[in-house]
């Protein structure tokens, strides 16, 4: 997340997550400024759901989001790289075998 500018007169920054329809995950839509959670939700409705893009909104103050470090993403995700046996295509099985 961006480093918050400690601009005293500025309303805090919030990240907005929207569920586009029941059954789907909330997805990051963008951010906005609001003085509190209620205002953030109302503003999110006006800014991000003018065309029925959502049935549910989550907001969280940006400063509470912790993110992995992009510069060490190589090392962080490396352990997943060499374990191709986690994928179904790794297994060599006869063509006659069905429903699997």
């Amino acid at each position: 997340m961006p480093e918050q500018n400690s601009n005293k007169n500025e309303w805090p920054l919030w990240e907005v997550f929207i569920r586009s329809k029941a059954g789907l995950d909330h997805k990051h839509a963008g951010s906005l400024h609001a003085i509190d959670a209620n205002m953030a939700i109302e503003n999110a409705r006006d800014v991000y759901t003018r065309r029925m893009e959502g049935v549910s909104i989550w907001v969280v103050e940006s400063k509470y989001i912790h993110a992995s470090d992009p510069d060490s993403s190589g090392a962080l995700f490396d352990p997943a790289n060499d374990k191709i046996y986690r994928h179904p295509t790794f297994y060599d099985l006869p063509d006659e075998l069905t429903h699997m």
């Binding site: 961006p2 500018n5 601009n7 500025e10 920054l13 963008g30 951010s31 906005l32 400024h33």
Partner: peptide, 15 residues
Amino acid sequence: LYLYSAAETLGISRD
């Protein structure tokens, strides 16, 4: 508003 928040990710404040 979408664009202001995109610019803010680069380290400039809204104000």
